[in-house]
C-alpha cells in the first residue's frame, strides 16, 4: 500500500525527525592548535571541556584515539579562554573534561591547577592537599601522565630538592616551561643543597616556599632559610597563607 493513499502510513512517515543540533558534540571531540612557550600545542576538547593536549609532531589523532576511543574532528574555533590562558599562564577560567581520570587523578590534576604561574611546589605538597600524604610517588606518576600538560600546569610541581622531575613532554620541556615563567629552578636546587627548603622574613614573621611571590620580596638582610616548617615555627614564624608550606610535611 502506498503512503499517499493510507493515512496511517503517512502519519508514521511523519514521525521521522532530524537529530537535535549539538548531539555530535556528545560523541566527537574537537581539536585545534594554539601557541605555547614550548611550541605549537594541539588541543582536543569535548562539550565538557579540554580533554587532551600534545605538542605538534606526535601523531595526535592516533594517540588521542588510543587513549579516548572517540572521534576527533577539527574545531571551527578554539574553546573559550584557551588562547588567553596560554598567553597569561593562568588556567583558572578553563573548563577541563577529566572524566577519563579516576578520583585520585582528578584531585591531583585539580590541585596542580592551584599553583600560580612563576611558582613551584613539591610533589608531597600536592599529596597532602588531596588528602593522601603518603602518595607523593603516585602524585608524580599521575602528573607525568597529565592529559593536558601546560594547561594544567604540572610543570609547576617538582621534587623537593629542586630537581624538575618527570613531564609528559620530557624534562627539557618542563624546564623550558618554568624558565618561560621566570622560575629559577637552579636557585631552588642550590638552596636545597644547603638544606634550605623554606624562606622566612624576620620583618613579617612569615615562612614561604622559595618561589612564592611573598618569599621573592624578602631582602637578603631579612631572609632566613629553614629546613622544615617545624623549625621555622619553633623560631616563631607562621606559614604563608598564599603558598601554604605547612602542607608539604607532617605536623
Amino acid at each position: 500500500m502506498d503512503s499517499t493513499h493510507d493515512p496511517l502510513l503517512a502519519r508514521l512517515a511523519g514521525l521521522a525527525t532530524d537529530a537535535p543540533d549539538g548531539l555530535l558534540g556528545r560523541i566527537a571531540a574537537r581539536w585545534t592548535r594554539a601557541p605555547s612557550p614550548v611550541g605549537e600545542l594541539l588541543v582536543a576538547f569535548t562539550d565538557e571541556g579540554i580533554v587532551y593536549a600534545r605538542l605538534e609532531g606526535e601523531d595526535f589523532a592516533a594517540s588521542f584515539r588510543e587513549r579516548f576511543a572517540r572521534p576527533l574532528l577539527p574545531a571551527p574555533r578554539p574553546p573559550a579562554g584557551l588562547l588567553p590562558a596560554l598567553r597569561s599562564g593562568r588556567s583558572s577560567g578553563l573548563r577541563f573534561d577529566l572524566r577519563d581520570a579516576d578520583d585520585f587523578q582528578r584531585d591531583v590534576l585539580r590541585a596542580a591547577l592551584t599553583v600560580p604561574r612563576g611558582q613551584v611546589r613539591p610533589y608531597s605538597w600536592i599529596a597532602r592537599l588531596v588528602g593522601r600524604p603518603e602518595a607523593a610517588r603516585e602524585v608524580a606518576s599521575t602528573l607525568e601522565r597529565n592529559p593536558v600538560p601546560v594547561l594544567i600546569p604540572c610543570h609547576r610541581v617538582v621534587r623537593a630538592d629542586g630537581a624538575a622531575g618527570g613531564h609528559a613532554f620530557g624534562r627539557a620541556a618542563k624546564e623550558a616551561l618554568l624558565r618561560a615563567e621566570n622560575v629559577d629552578l637552579g636557585e631552588v636546587r642550590s638552596l636545597a643543597e644547603a638544606g634550605v627548603l623554606y624562606l622566612g622574613s624576620d620583618t613579617t614573621g612569615i615562612v614561604c616556599f622559595p618561589t612564592c611571590h611573598n618569599a621573592r620580596r624578602i631582602t637578603s638582610a631579612h631572609r632566613h632559610g629553614f629546613h622544615s616548617v617545624a623549625q621555622a615555627e619553633r623560631a616563631g614564624y607562621r606559614t604563608c597563607l598564599h603558598c601554604r608550606p605547612g602542607l608539604a610535611e607532617a605536623g
Partner: peptide, 13 residues
Amino acid sequence: AALFAAYRGLVFS
C-alpha cells in the same frame, strides 16, 4: 563525520 551527517536523522528518528 560523513557517517554522522548521512545518518543522524535516520538513527535519531
